[in-house]
Amino acid sequence: MTVDVRVQDELRSWQKKMEKRQSMTGRLAKRLQTKMNQIIPEKVHHVVTTSIKKMVHATLIGSEYTTSVKRIDHTSFEERERRVDEAIKKYKKTAAVEGAGTGAGGILLGMADFPLLLGIKMKFLFETASCYGYDVNNFRERLFILYLFQLAFSSEEKRKEVYEIVSNWDAYVHTIPTEEEYLENINWKEFQLEYRDHIDLVKMLQLIPGVGAIVGAAANYHFLDVLGETAKNGYRMRLLKL
């Protein structure tokens, strides 16, 4: 497979970022987040927890994200990258519009943003997997999507652990038990706590009257940008074996 030098440079740069040790800033942010969790209304925690549990369930055993996705076969790597870039642009705009709309509506609509944004993120990941030629009806491919999600939205400490799995997927995939066994032991609570802690500080600002629309649009656009970079490079590692 002939690969543009730019793609290889982007991938190696991203890999170095993933392998960096936890920074002082990261540790301070974690402490600040712990304090923030104590003042965030329980109602908000409940919305996020319930939304993530439903998202994990839909990703692993549902058909919500697979029914409209068609696997793309027999095309060049360059064409796959082009399609993924188009998807990133499309979903970033969608997320920004959704964030602006819910952010302008105060706390109730702001809370509604959590499940809506989760859905946008997961639809993007499923479309990206299909663009790169992977079968999203396969349980292990859906599991890889969840790991990419975690990699994009976890603390620096957790990110290192998830990156080890993603970067050694071909070996790790053989250790995964059957679908039924895996579902019985999934630690979805840890999963949702990592995600919630990663985004809460920014998303809480979205609930502030007057600035919610601006914060909501900017934050959602940024989150999809981060997810796009993570997904592209996660699949690049598998395809290019770098």
Results as ranks from 00 to 15, higher is better:
residue 44 V to G: 10
residue 45 H to K: 09
residue 46 H to I: 12
residue 47 V to I: 14
residue 47 V to L: 05
residue 48 V to F: 03
residue 50 T to K: 14
residue 50 T to I: 12
residue 50 T to E: 11
residue 50 T to Q: 11
residue 50 T to Y: 10
residue 54 K to E: 09
residue 55 M to F: 11
residue 56 V to N: 01
residue 57 H to T: 15
residue 60 L to P: 04
residue 63 S to K: 09
residue 64 E to F: 07
residue 64 E to D: 14
residue 64 E to A: 14
residue 65 Y to V: 01
residue 66 T to I: 11
residue 67 T to W: 06
residue 68 S to H: 11
residue 71 R to F: 07
residue 72 I to K: 12
residue 76 S to M: 06
residue 76 S to I: 00
residue 77 F to E: 08
residue 77 F to G: 05
residue 77 F to C: 05
residue 77 F to V: 01
residue 78 E to L: 03
residue 81 E to C: 02
residue 83 R to G: 13
residue 84 V to G: 05
residue 85 D to A: 12
residue 85 D to Y: 09
residue 87 A to D: 14
residue 87 A to G: 07
residue 88 I to R: 03
residue 90 K to D: 08
residue 90 K to F: 03
residue 92 K to N: 08
residue 92 K to H: 07
residue 94 T to Q: 15
residue 94 T to E: 14
residue 95 A to I: 05
residue 97 V to L: 13
residue 98 E to M: 15
residue 99 G to M: 02
residue 99 G to Y: 03
residue 100 A to V: 00
residue 101 G to S: 15
residue 101 G to N: 13
residue 101 G to M: 14
residue 102 T to Y: 07
residue 103 G to V: 03
residue 104 A to N: 06
residue 105 G to Q: 02
residue 105 G to C: 04
residue 105 G to K: 01
residue 108 L to H: 08
residue 109 L to I: 08
residue 109 L to R: 08
residue 109 L to N: 03
residue 110 G to Q: 05
residue 111 M to A: 06
residue 113 D to T: 00
residue 113 D to N: 04
residue 114 F to Y: 11
residue 115 P to D: 08
residue 118 L to Y: 01
residue 118 L to R: 00
residue 120 I to W: 10
residue 120 I to R: 08
residue 122 M to P: 00
residue 122 M to N: 12
residue 123 K to N: 12
residue 124 F to H: 04
residue 127 E to D: 13
residue 127 E to Y: 06
residue 128 T to V: 11
residue 129 A to V: 01
residue 135 D to Y: 02
residue 135 D to M: 02
residue 136 V to T: 00
residue 137 N to A: 07
residue 137 N to W: 06
residue 139 F to I: 04
residue 141 E to T: 03
residue 142 R to H: 06
